[in-house]
Amino acid sequence: MKPLLIAAALLLVPAVAQAQVAAATVPNSFDRPAARTQQPVPAPSAAAPGPAAAPAPAMSTTPANARSEEVLREIIAGGQAGALPYATMTDDLAAKVREQEAAVLPILQGFGAIQALDFVGSQEGADLFAVTFATAATQWIIGFDDAGKVDALLFRPAE
């Protein structure tokens, strides 16, 4: 698992105040690039060009982990029942999520029943799912370590 994916982040829906929990700062490579604005492009200088930025890795159409949907459903169901399944998580992630449990559980419970859970893509070892609940549309990112434990978890409102 890429070191930058070691994160536990839970983002509240905009109607409830914006809040976030993170184990580390993680760039969100699942988002589409921001729309370009029409700004003049500076003329190239005579000096040697600097290093080019590496392109973002392409998103795969197959899950990085065959268990990701099953485990994600288990995490959501556990949260809605009031008992997150910490045994599925790494110790570090479980500790980060426990710190936010009192705030996260009511949010998950308020979403209502899952209406749809769809795999969107996989990038750098993590899988992205679109999860539509009775009262909210969300995006979830889940990643696993080499031992098969969840070491990256994020949910946020869908765009």
Rank of each mutant, 00 (worst) to 15 (best):
M89L: 14
M89Y: 12
F144Q: 03
P57V: 14
Q139R: 14
A64K: 11
M59Q: 12
L84V: 10
A81G: 08
S68R: 10
A94F: 03
F133T: 02
S122F: 05
K149G: 00
I141W: 02
I107M: 14
D92N: 12
Q80P: 08
T88C: 03
L154V: 14
P85D: 04
L108P: 05
T138L: 01
Q109T: 07
A54P: 00
A103F: 14
F111M: 10
V150E: 02
L72C: 02
K149N: 06
A137V: 06
A77N: 05
D127N: 10
A126G: 04
F133H: 13
A113W: 02
A113F: 02
G121N: 05
T62F: 04
L108D: 07
A77G: 07
E70C: 01
G110V: 01
Q109K: 15
I141E: 08
A116S: 13
E70Q: 15
D151N: 15
D146G: 08
D127E: 01
A103L: 11
L72I: 02
I141Y: 06
A58R: 15
G110L: 02
G82R: 13
E69A: 08
G110A: 04
V104D: 07
T132P: 00
R67K: 13
F144R: 12
F129N: 07
G79C: 03
I114C: 03
L84P: 08
G143M: 04
A130V: 00
T135K: 15
P57T: 12
I75T: 10
S60W: 00
N65L: 01
L153F: 15
V131C: 04
F111T: 07
